[in-house]
Simulated assay, not measured.
Amino acid sequence: MDHDHHETPSFWRSRAGLALLSKSWHFLYHAQRRHHIATAGPYRWVRHSQYIGFVAIVFGFLLQWPTLLTLAMFPVMVAMYVRLSIMEERESKQAFGQAWLDYAAVTPQLIPKFGRNGALPVNNH
């Protein structure tokens, strides 16, 4: 049976991660240029969407081409991004003060919250 790797869940997981990463960087870049908190686009749902994109890409690769090295490195990479997000949280709190605290109070750090109907809630920041 001929199987196209573009039809596998791992391919689409990596593709979705790349799309999220690209979209996140766009909003982050423009917010940083204005010295604002990125609260639009994917940042409405989660404070570190760019890291979720990276993890999705690498997880897709891990599923597509599992090796001992990728299996060992995946949890290390996830831990590094969690640690980086915590450091960035401290910097953002210092830079933006109460505005950051207000945003952080309603927007999850890494895992989006879903409503009762399974949809992401709209964050009006």
Rank of each mutant, 00 (worst) to 15 (best):
M1K: 14
D2V: 15
H3S: 15
H3F: 15
D4C: 12
D4S: 13
E7R: 12
T8I: 12
S10L: 11
S10P: 04
R13M: 15
R13P: 03
S14N: 03
S14T: 06
S14G: 13
R15G: 07
G17S: 06
L18G: 13
L20D: 00
L20Q: 00
S22C: 11
S22M: 10
K23V: 15
S24L: 04
S24H: 03
W25P: 05
H26R: 14
H26W: 10
H26L: 14
H26S: 09
F27S: 06
F27Q: 06
Y29K: 15
H30W: 13
H30Y: 13
A31V: 08
R33V: 10
R34K: 14
R34E: 14
R34T: 09
H35G: 12
H35T: 15
I37R: 05
A38F: 01
T39H: 07
A40C: 08
A40D: 12
A40S: 12
G41C: 03
P42K: 00
R44C: 04
W45V: 04
W45R: 01
V46S: 04
V46G: 05
V46C: 09
R47H: 03
R47G: 02
I52Q: 02
F54N: 12
F54P: 02
F54A: 10
V55A: 06
V55P: 00
A56S: 11
I57T: 07
F59C: 11
F59W: 14
G60Q: 02
G60N: 02
G60Y: 03
L62I: 08
L62F: 12
P66E: 00
P66W: 00
L69K: 05
L69F: 04
L71R: 06
L71V: 02
M73W: 08
M73F: 09
F74W: 00
P75D: 00
V76F: 12
V78K: 01
A79H: 02
A79F: 00
A79S: 04
A79I: 04
M80H: 15
V82Q: 10
V82E: 11
R83N: 11
L84W: 10
S85P: 04
S85I: 01
S85A: 07
I86P: 10
I86R: 07
M87C: 11
E88M: 09
R90T: 10
E91S: 14
S92Q: 13
S92I: 10
Q94P: 15
Q94M: 15
A95I: 08
A95N: 13
F96L: 08
F96H: 09
A99L: 12
A99C: 11
L101D: 09
L101R: 13
L101A: 11
D102W: 00
A104T: 06
A105K: 07
A105V: 08
T107L: 07
Q109P: 09
L110R: 03
P112S: 04
F114Y: 09
G115R: 01
R116D: 05
N117H: 01
N117I: 01
A119H: 02
A119C: 05
L120Q: 03
V122C: 05
N123E: 02
N123I: 01
N123W: 06
N124P: 00
N124I: 01
N124D: 08
H125P: 11
